[in-house]
Write a protein that binds this DNA or RNA. Sequence first.
DNA 1: TCTGGGGTCCTAGGACCC
DNA 2: TCTGGGGTCCTAGGACCC
Length: 416
Amino acid sequence: MTARPSILHADLDAFYASVEQLLDPALRGRPVAVGGGVVLACSYEAKRRGVSGAMPAWRARERCPELVFVRGSFGEYRRLGDRVMEILGTYTPAVQRISIDEAFLDVGGSERLHGPPEHIALQIRRRVREEVGLPISVGAARTKHLAKIASQVAKPDGLVVVDPAREREFLDPLPVRLVWGVGPVTGADLEARGIRTIGELARASPERLAGLLGAERGTRLRALAANEDPRPVRPGGRAGSVGAQSAFRRSAPTPDLLAEVLGHLADRVAGRLRAKGLAGRTVTVRVRFADLRSVTRSITLADPVAATLTLREVAEGLVAEALADHPRERTLTLLAISVSALTAETEVQLELAVDAADDPRRPGSRTAAARLAADRSVDRVRERFGRGAIGFATVALGERAGVPDDFRELAERDGG
DNA sequence: TCTGGGGTCCTAGGACCC
DNA sequence: TCTGGGGTCCTAGGACCC
């Protein structure tokens, strides 16, 4: 084989928990969990004692009584994650960040400056340890998917380079759950039919997989298992949707509750859209009932929204529809708003001068213009004085949300 | 005292157009 | 009077990832 294992996948180990241990030396060597009611991330010391992500706090404490719970240091996660990405960027501009703590690199063109991929991987691990103080695992291989699997195998705090001549040897015995896109449901399906390893998935007939998973998905997962997915490292990456959700204790869908929660969510979503210079035409709401089943309702508007009040009104209408379709459901446990079909907000602004129909959903209307202008004033005040300085019901919402807003933006299940 | 919050991608049916 | 095939957009739901 001539191909080099020039794709790297770099993945910080137990990121949130490692940051906490970095910030507070008293936590080092101890089982640490980040989160409130549930474990959002935990240290390897905690994992060894049976704690894992998404576990309710009471169960985690049951399994590991000496577990130390910390609420999380959101700003630090963002800051340190960014610093690590900066280090990665010194080896190639071809860095594709896929979450706060994880990225692909194509170092195929970096050899002359920085040496072969293995050497770069070693340097990355050493520099992140020395300059940031965090452990990071790296996988190196010929393809992205294989590099990602390699970094998972390398954890914790390791490096795995997959020799292009020995890819099958490496891949075949690994559990099928390591394939990207095989989750609990599909994994259980496959295992029930005797497909337990990646090798078995790669060798399964396309017809059989199509019957099991559907044609498209069967083909895709088999290609991943067979390591025949050549997708390139794609730097940058634009958001396709912006959303927010809020889980709460079982509550009747009273007008007060809906106004409060949807107002808060619309404020968050629209604010983030404006901060990114975006607006979106499709608004989707999700309503979760007491039994954790949820339904969604969406609408695609003629023009993109970025104004808080307009988004809130549209969302209220959609939630009302969803509730009307489920008249027997008396209890809610979650509401969510998401905006997709995004466009650059400059296009919205251009339309401001155009027409004057007074439907606030139309960006050209005076109402829409006034709303957007008011929102921007609020945005500016918040930029200077912080989120709490002004805005919708942040005080009234109080403890209901349970998780600090900043944290929500960063939260992820398996970060540690 | 059973479950965060942020996303992506895919499927499938229906409306509508040519 | 009955009809095809293709394409796009919209909507609802589900699995998955971090």
